[in-house]
Amino acid sequence: MQLLRHEGVRVIFPKNQGCCGQPAFNSGYREQALPVARALSKCFPKELPIIVPSASCAGMIKHHWQELFAGQEDEQYVLDIASRTYELTEYLVNELRIKLTDLGEPIEIAVHSSCSAQREMKVDQHIKSLISQLDNVNIIEHQRKTECCGFGGTFMVKQADISGAMVKDKTDCLRETGATTVISQDCGCLMNIGGAFEKQMASGEKSMNTQHIAEFLWQRCYKE
């Protein structure tokens, strides 16, 4: 929000916003997902762009709400919301055409593109293009970079063992890069990956910082 404001955007934070409904939607409980999604949809009556700083939530609103709201009275309204929804980096690159100046120390990072960013929102190239504006930041590609980190919302709870095996693979691949920090567009993945690193530290493994792209950009380009 601070980053957007700094770029001259008037940011409104709708005070009643909650959840997009994805956890219940992806668990089969659509009845329960619908009122939650509807409550959120009511926060955006004005014809303004809606910026979502997490690709999977953006994907839910943009692509799955129409399935969830199919046949409902507010289906059209929700389609309108979907058309106004942007993932944060998408907005920064395509709409704002942001110009960044890197003020930070040289750093090597790895970028984890979430599944929603790659395959649903198709915005994974934007995070790269933002970082490519930063002179002192070097992205090191990791093995199997398109593979899911094992988050998957309630999947992580319902299939904890499989999810655990997936996040172990992901953290191993990220660690192999030798970079110090992992950047992502998705809060869920960051929570999963960061939590796994922290847990693995207990068994003496090297950890990495995890940071959301917005925070990373804010720290490098704006904070003195």
Binding site: S27, T154, M156, V157, K158, A160, D161, S163, G164, V167, K168, N192, G194, G195, A196, E198, K199
Partner: peptide
């Protein structure tokens, strides 16, 4: 959510 699997996910990552 899944009482039988309660907290198992925290085996692989911190809460």
């Amino acid at each position: 959510l899944t009482p039988s699997k309660l907290g198992k996910w925290s085996k692989y990552r911190t809460v």
